[in-house]
Each structure stands twice: as C-alpha cells, then as structure tokens.
Design a protein around this nucleic acid. Structure first.
Lengths: 110, 110
DNA sequence: CAAACATACATAAGCCTTCTAGGTATGATA
DNA sequence: TATCATACCTAGAAGGCTTATGTATGTTTG
C-alpha cells in the first residue's frame, strides 16, 4: 500500500531487456541483487516475478539461455537474442517514452 | 502487445492525484481528454479504468466530489481533499522516485 | 430531421501480471 | 551443525486494467 511495488506492474519485462542490453549475460538472482543496488533498495524484483518473466521472454524469442556451473552452483544465464534486436529496442523505447510522458504528468520535466 | 497501455498499471491512481494537484477540480471525461493531449496520444486513460479509480480515491478519502450541471449535461467534479494532502504528496513522491529509478535502469538518466 | 458523433457517466467479466508462500539444493559461515 | 547466502522453480491468490456494454443528453451533418 505504501510501497512502490505496484508501480512495477507491466514494466518488468522491459526493465529486464534494458538490463541485458547494458550488462550482457546475467542470471536471475544476479538481476535481483543488481537492481536492488542500482535503485537504493527501492525497486525490489521478487524471484516469483522474475523467473516466470525470464521464461516468458525466452519463450517469446527475445532471450537466449545457457546453464553454467560456478562454485558448485548452477546458474542459468540469459542474454539478448540479437535476431530480435528490433523488437527489443522497440519495447525499451516505448517504456522510455512512457516514463517521459509520465514525468510530464507528474510535473517533473527536469 | 505493441502499445504502452500495460505500463499504466499501478500508476493510474497517482497520475490522477498529480493531475488534480496541478489543475484543481476536474471531471472524469475531461481527464481522459487532457491526458491524451498532454502526452501526444500515448497515455490513453480508458473510462473503464478512470471511473472506478475516481470512486476508489474518493472512498479512500483522497478526493472530494460534487455534481454540476453544465449545458444540460451533468458533470461530476473531483478535487483533492486538503486534509489528506500529506498522503497525497507522499504517493506522488513515491511515483516520482520510482520513475527516476526506472530511468536509471533504462539508462536514460538525462 | 434523422443519423451520427461528442459529451458524460457507470458497471461487469475476463485477462494479465505480480506477490506471497512454498519448495529444492549447494556452499559458506558462525 | 545450524543458519545464512546463493540459485533455481512453481502454484494460488490478489489486484488493476481492458474490453464490452449500457444509459442519457447535446450537437453536427447529410
């Protein structure tokens, strides 16, 4: 109620795509940690949201995955599917536009 | 799928509060039109979303309403309930913060 | 002058996304 | 050896928006 969790709704897929675009390959757990750090603990991606989202994006052909074993633990790395780059950029641009307009509505053009 | 409609999810209530803060009293239909104009037809608030949202905000004590007859048509005007101003500002600030962090994740700090 | 369009409100069913809560497994730390 | 951190996963419930529909009045157009 008094958190900003609900704002995330609808933006998660695109946030993930943008993170992959900047950071290359990443795995789920890492994304949760990184996002938390980058946003001063305000955007907290839950695993219950992130793993299904990654599966969805892979199924939709926007992500590719590969498993790697590191320190005895298996990580599932994802990265952008370059053959869907147009679609990926399009989605990121849409969200950028949206946040821009949103800031106009919120009167924080700066 | 290829629109930015889904991004709206979770932000509608707060957008409304911000609009009221800037524009004073407004009625539902007007808000739909104004938002459309202010965002170059990209943020399209549907009536099916906006009317329930206005009812909710009034029920929660954040908005006050009054009916007025203009040109034979009845308008239901809403405005901020000044006694809830603290809560209202808090919600707007939360969304502002969120969009700020979102832009960091999207790499569009400017 | 009738049809179409714009204004203005409202609600219900369904969809989609996320959250909560739970589960499994390994390595490190206390 | 118990707890915590890492690392994955899924199911059920909750919540918010879209789509579709309904009502009613005023204005424009053919």
């Amino acid at each position: 109620m008094d958190s900003n969790k609900k704002f995330l709704n609808g933006t998660l897929n695109t946030i993930l795509l943008a993170l992959f675009k900047e950071h290359g390959k990443m795995y789920g757990y890492e994304i949760c940690q990184l996002t938390k750090e980058k946003t001063d603990n305000t955007i907290l991606l839950t695993e219950g949201a992130i793993y299904p989202a990654l599966h969805r994006l892979e199924k939709d052909g926007l992500l590719l995955s590969s498993k790697e074993k590191t320190n005895g633990r298996t990580r599932k790395y994802y990265s952008l599917n370059s053959s869907s780059m147009q679609e990926i950029d399009s989605q990121i641009n849409l969200l950028s536009q949206f946040t821009g307009h949103l800031r106009v509505l919120l009167n924080q053009k700066a």
